[in-house]
Design a protein around this nucleic acid. Sequence first.
DNA 1: GGAACATGATTGACGTGTCAATCATTTTCT
DNA 2: AGAAAATGATTGACACGTCAATCATGTTCC
Lengths: 157, 157
Amino acid sequence: MTQRKRRLPTTEELRIWRDFIETAEALRSELSSRLQSESSLSPGDYAVMLALSEADGHRLRPSELAATIGWERSRLSHHLGRMEQRGLVRREECATDSRGAEIVLTAGGAEAFRGASIPHLRAVRELFVDALSPGQLTAAGELAAALRGRLAELRAR
Amino acid sequence: MTQRKRRLPTTEELRIWRDFIETAEALRSELSSRLQSESSLSPGDYAVMLALSEADGHRLRPSELAATIGWERSRLSHHLGRMEQRGLVRREECATDSRGAEIVLTAGGAEAFRGASIPHLRAVRELFVDALSPGQLTAAGELAAALRGRLAELRAR
DNA sequence: GGAACATGATTGACGTGTCAATCATTTTCT
DNA sequence: AGAAAATGATTGACACGTCAATCATGTTCC
């Protein structure tokens, strides 16, 4: 086996790669645009509000929130600023650590989230789940696991 | 069969969906950051330059270019502005249609693209192709086709 | 106690993506 | 020819994401 890791992808492998990544992107974009037009929320808003709505008292520290949804803190901070402007969340001071803040889902935010949720889940079913056979769905999960595993391996080094 | 299309995804289906879309996103992000650090090019730059480098005379009309890489014209126009600033491409007037322009890959652009290409392809192999079994690779292609087909169906309506 | 360091979070700068509006040049149609 | 519509492309405004820098508060350790 000569330098397995140094070979370049074949034309066919490259085609699959491009199909895969472009399709994922198209899917993300379609979901995003539906969410936007149906509820004026972005996928980012949705992720933040999902985490908050599942949290105790509809509130979380920014760091916990960032960890939950897998975002960098900086990204979250910018996003929260925009969401706060729109009245979806509120920043409050943290009682136990005065460096920190607490992010609270407002009543309006909770309502917006409730309104967005069902249509969004329906869209996921329509565009993803129902587009695949049961076997393909399983395969999708395994694919994600394999790719994720690979990424984790490399980061570990 | 009662209202098949109106049911919401199950917890398991939702988990797969999230794994899938988040993994694709993580992959995109990792590839992007490697490309950036190795060659100071973004995936967008790369897509544009790949199309140009395969075109006759290393030049294309913006609309053709946009169609080739599947971008909206507005997005392309903004991106070309930034690339032009960096000397990667040049805008020239079009001989046959004075509304139009022609985008030309500069010598510097071509060189940057050549330098980025091999490492990028290696990264695709390492992070995608080599992470999957041959069967999974095939499955990835079929998955993409199924999802793409679904998107096309819906747009056609 | 107080210097050094760690942690929680925000900020600014800048590249990127979308949408709607705009502008100039064809093309079409009568 | 000339008004109307189509086409090629750009622009401005604004949301989003990343990176490096910053700031304030906590923690550690002598």
